[in-house]
């Protein structure tokens, strides 16, 4: 890992009785693309808001590039780029006016930093005179990202940038993040989509205000140590119910066009398939597979409960 850029120590956040964050600690290196992965209510937004100086932690402290997020908030606000969870630009201003506005309040100009956003902004530039409210979801996202980057931030926070947008725009957004990372920008991004974890350098699994695991996605997958099988067959729903009844089955979950089954002990896939076929009296297809991030997340959820 490069030099530490963000350092978080024992941060907690309480809203009255509700504990949104419980004793979170981790650090992020310079130029790292770091993912906060987890469902809604996991504490992702609270954590990002604390790091962007929008909220004060109830307990604990954090530093970004040596600056304290509470004491030095004024200095930090000059180096932070932030894209909130929902579209937060002025819908009654045009594309260009929005960008110009955000450039100016950060004491810079579009011209000065155009090279930073060129890749992204050039895609929406043909519509620069259109009001932001009239843009499609994917274009809004590109504009928001341009606005968050125009002042050449040293660190970029994105809160669920891919929630509610379609698969194509999601792919494009991650392509852009990859490019930004290559320019040595530190990026912290949150997402409920597990498959996006693969695109990060490291990810933190967040659930109910706690971090279940932090590691590079490859490590997480390697550390998955339960025997995992994919089962395919007709009559999907009954197959699923029957698989759960088998003694060897620890968990069985639908996964795309197959069912992922974790077993209590290692078994030859053809042997397992024979067991299933005998039970179901239909033809099935069973393979031993390696886990993906979502398998890992679910296993973590079940094992921590």
């Amino acid at each position: 890992m490069n030099k530490t850029f963000v350092n978080i120590e024992n941060i907690s956040k309480f809203y009255g009785e509700i504990k949104a964050l419980k004793n979170i600690s981790f650090s992020v290196g310079e130029g790292e693309l770091f993912g906060l992965i987890g469902p809604d209510g996991g504490g992702k937004t609270s954590l990002i808001r604390i790091l962007t100086t929008l909220l004060k932690p109830t307990e604990g402290r954090a530093e970004i590039n040596g600056m304290d997020i509470v004491k030095d908030f004024k200095k930090l606000r000059k180096i932070i780029g932030y894209m909130p969870g929902r579209f937060s630009l002025y819908e009654d201003l045009t594309v260009e006016e929005n960008l110009k506005f955000f450039a100016t309040i950060f004491n810079t100009t579009i011209k000065e930093n155009y090279h930073l956003i060129e890749d992204i902004y050039s895609q929406i530039e043909p519509f620069k005179n259109r009001r932001a409210g009239k843009l499609s979801g994917g274009m809004k996202q590109k504009l928001a990202l341009s606005c968050a980057l125009i002042h050449k931030p040293e660190i970029l926070f994105l809160d669920e940038p891919t929630t509610g947008i379609d698969a194509v725009s999601r792919v494009e957004l991650w392509e852009m993040l990859k490019k930004l990372k290559d320019q040595n920008l530190t990026i912290i991004v949150s997402t409920p989509y597990m498959d996006e974890a693969n695109l990060c350098d490291r990810v933190a699994f967040m659930q109910k205000g706690e971090i279940m695991e932090i590691n590079p996605p490859e490590t997480i997958i390697q550390e998955f140590n339960e025997p995992l099988y994919s089962v395919k067959g007709d009559d999907f729903y009954h197959l699923l119910l029957e698989l759960r009844k088998m003694e060897i089955t620890k968990t069985a979950f639908p996964f795309g066009d197959s069912i992922h089954l974790t077993a209590y002990n290692n078994i030859n896939p053809s042997e397992l398939n024979a067991m299933i076929e005998e039970r179901m009296r239909i033809k099935t297809e069973t393979q031993k597979i390696s886990a993906n991030i979502e398998d890992c997340f679910m296993a973590k959820m079940i094992n921590t409960e």
Binding site: T53, K74, I80, Y82, S88, Y90, E91, F102, I105, C147
Partner: peptide
């Protein structure tokens, strides 16, 4: 309400 205040707050204005 629209969330733009969040961005204004995070900016140096």
């Amino acid at each position: 309400e629209k969330g733009t205040m969040e961005i204004l707050l995070v900016s140096p204005i």
